[in-house]
């Protein structure tokens, strides 16, 4: 895992440098400056050194927990991340929990009631959700539940933890819906496959009630591919959250990342991307551990 993050850091660093842009312009916000001032800035940010040297400076700093200073905002990247990450992480975690809590039961119900009215209804609904873009769902939810019904606030993140949960409910729901759709569909098709598997027939032939066959025997077998997809989705959601954050005016990490890319704010782009890679790798590690817990065949390897 450490290796993956290390290789990714090289890639991130290189890619940021490849873009044809002028970081000095981002620091001065496009104002004209004297040649001496310019050179001083170049030296201050080590832009006069070769790229590998710059990398070494950056990565050794990063290992000590210092991701450098933002060019534009003149504040440490770690501070920016620290101020923005909690909201994003909370939205992502909440929507992941919501998505899983909604989608797996939906998928199981659809599979058990395959080709009945209820299956058709839920399948159509999830199909619509999977097709509608996040920002649209977010705006619709906001219009209906925040502006029309006034059940939820339409922007902001709240101050206390309880307030947080309440303020971030709608954004998280908006973000989770497309994931709900995807996971529900995967759960459905996997569950159908498992219900038709010979071992399920064996369980029925043993006299085990159908409900127990579904929940004890088939559920575990169904959940493995679902975990894979869910974990990948959670990774993408961190960046996907930016759309929701925009609609609900929550300063999140995706927002900062995109404006930093536009402004060629190298340290911010690198810092946040490295963070995302690390989170991805961590999720993957968790998923691997989870796999081994579920499936004895994987424990060997």
């Amino acid at each position: 895992m450490a290796l993956i993050v290390f290789l990714a850091s090289i890639l991130i660093f290189a890619m940021v440098r490849v873009t044809p842009s002028d970081p000095i312009a981002s620091m001065t916000k496009g104002k004209r400056i004297s040649q001496e001032r310019r050179e001083a800035l170049v030296r201050q940010y080590h832009l006069d050194k070769t790229v590998p040297e710059q990398y070494v400076i950056w990565i050794t700093g990063a290992l000590r927990g210092d991701l450098g200073n933002s060019y534009g905002k003149k504040q440490p990247v770690t501070d920016i991340i620290a101020s923005r990450l909690p909201t994003t992480l909370q939205i992502v975690l909440m929507s992941a929990v919501m998505a899983i809590a909604l989608s797996i039961p939906i998928g199981i119900i659809c599979a058990v009631k395959m080709n009945t009215l209820i299956d058709r209804l839920l399948s159509t609904l999830t199909l619509i959700l999977v097709a509608s873009p996040v920002f649209l769902t977010a705006i619709v939810l906001m219009l209906v539940f925040a502006l029309k019904l006034r059940w939820f606030p339409s922007f902001g993140a709240g101050k206390t933890f309880a307030e947080n949960l309440y303020y971030l409910f709608l954004p998280s729901l908006a973000l989770s819906l497309s994931m709900v759709a995807l996971i529900a569909r995967i759960t459905r098709s996997n569950m159908i496959e498992q219900l038709n598997a010979p071992y399920a027939t064996t369980a029925v032939a043993k006299g085990i009630p159908y409900r127990t066959v579904v929940m004890k025997h088939c559920f575990k077998n169904t959940v493995i591919p679902v975990v894979t997809v869910a974990s990948l989705q959670i990774g993408t959601m961190i960046v996907g959250a930016v759309l929701v954050e925009n609609v609900f005016a929550l300063g999140g990490i995706g927002d900062v990342l995109i404006s930093a890319i536009k402004a060629s704010d190298y340290p911010v782009v690198q810092g946040i991307t490295l963070l995302l890679v690390t989170v991805f790798a961590l999720i993957n590690l968790l998923v691997d551990i989870l796999y081994a817990a579920i499936d004895p065949r994987i424990r060997l390897e």
Binding site: Y199, T202, G207, P209
Partner: peptide
Amino acid sequence: RREMEQVRGKRISMIFQDPMVSLNPLLC
């Protein structure tokens, strides 16, 4: 359905062609 569940595995039981797939892979 319930009476049938009492018969299955207790009075009449069944074994199948391919034991590899007829056992649940995730239970000992």
